[in-house]
């Protein structure tokens, strides 16, 4: 069991997962998103390689209306 903080919320996962697996589990595939892991940008090309581990903090963002 690992614990991650995603968009400020704590979530438990049975085992370490890649970012691509996380995206698929949460129906975010095909969405225009950007991800930061522990304060660093994760390029889309690395989604399938980066394994999320205990204590990681993710920010998952989209573009919204604003001025």
């Amino acid at each position: 069991m690992i614990q991650l903080t995603i968009n400020g919320e704590t979530r438990q996962f049975d085992q370490p997962i890649t970012i691509t697996q996380f995206i698929n589990q949460n129906n975010l595939q095909g969405k225009r998103i950007a991800i930061e892991r522990n304060g660093e940008i994760v390029p889309r090309s690395q989604f399938s390689e980066q394994l999320l581990t205990e204590g990681d903090r993710l920010e998952v963002v989209v573009a919204v209306g604003g001025g």
């Binding site: 989209v62 573009a63 209306g65 604003g66």
Partner: peptide, 11 residues
């Protein structure tokens, strides 16, 4: 055109 960047809904 300006846009804002915000956390997305998860799940």
């Amino acid at each position: 055109v300006t846009v804002a960047i915000r956390r997305t809904n998860i799940g």
